[in-house]
């Protein structure tokens, strides 16, 4: 059985003590790719922030394996007025807990930073100003930043927004490759259902308006009446060969 990286049971998320979704229960194991889908305002980002520990849950339990989490924020979260080269941005991802108090840490983390950049194919961009990169390149740099901490669980918030379809396909293929190479558990918010149908192994479907939460293997949730009612039968290509 694969290692359990994140287990949540009856987790209620919301704001100011007011839940916005029914309780969520799921377990993310190493090698699984969970896609979080739902209409705009469905509560996806609130759930993600709660899972990352950026805001407290209202009720329920959450257990994380003692491992590092890699977080890939939305690209527009980055401040374009902050100067920096690609290598600078990726290095920040290597810093964990109190590592910043050690002057030697950048030298100790060099191998991890290089591996992350090589795996995401941004090594040749190391000295470039990250602000001048294409959207696809920026996204790969953010993935390198998250991987520099050698995480077991990788969490991505809408990684392909504002990308063309070809770039989206390249990115999801890379994500698959990284997941299988490194045995990562992946949690990704995305609206691109056709790509998720090819690359996800599990689905978490949220709909705040209808009070619906469905979590489970892709084929199972994609055939759930609530999901079909919202999206139809769009996801007709379950991920056969992409499971770990």
């Amino acid at each position: 059985m694969s290692e359990e990286l994140l287990t949540i049971k009856d987790l209620l998320v919301g704001h100011a003590g007011r839940p916005i979704l029914p309780p969520v229960t799921l377990t993310v194991c190493a090698g699984e790719a969970w896609a979080i889908v739902g209409p705009n305002g469905a509560g996806k980002s609130t759930l993600l922030r709660t899972l990352l520990g950026l805001q407290p849950g209202i009720a329920g339990t959450m257990r994380r394996a003692p491992c590092t989490i890699g977080y890939v924020p939305q690209r527009h979260d980055l401040d374009p007025t902050v100067p920096g080269r690609v290598i600078d941005l990726v290095r920040t991802g290597a810093e964990q807990r109190w590592s910043f108090i050690s002057p030697l840490f950048p030298f100790q983390a060099r191998a991890r930073v290089e591996r992350a950049m090589r795996d995401t194919r941004v090594l040749e961009l190391a000295r470039e100003d990250w602000r001048h990169l294409s959207e696809g390149q920026k996204q790969r740099v953010l993935m390198a930043q998250a991987l520099a901490g050698e995480p077991r669980l990788l969490v991505l918030d809408e990684p392909t927004s504002a990308m063309d379809m070809a770039a989206e396909g390249v990115l999801f293929a890379l994500l698959d490759e990284l997941r299988l190479q490194r045995g990562l558990g992946v949690l990704v918010i995305s609206h691109h259902l056709a790509l998720l149908g090819k690359h996800a192994t599990h689905l978490l479907f949220l709909d705040k308006d209808e009070g619906v939460v469905r979590a489970g293997p892709l084929a199972e949730v994609a055939q759930d009446p609530a999901f079909v009612q919202r999206y139809g039968l769009l996801m007709h290509q379950p991920a056969g060969g992409h499971h770990a």
Partner: peptide
């Protein structure tokens, strides 16, 4: 390095502990 992380990417720094 800690001051820069907190000033430029507070959420990321919190996730990284």
């Amino acid at each position: 390095r800690g001051f820069i992380q907190v000033a430029t990417d507070q959420d990321g720094a919190r996730v990284r502990g």
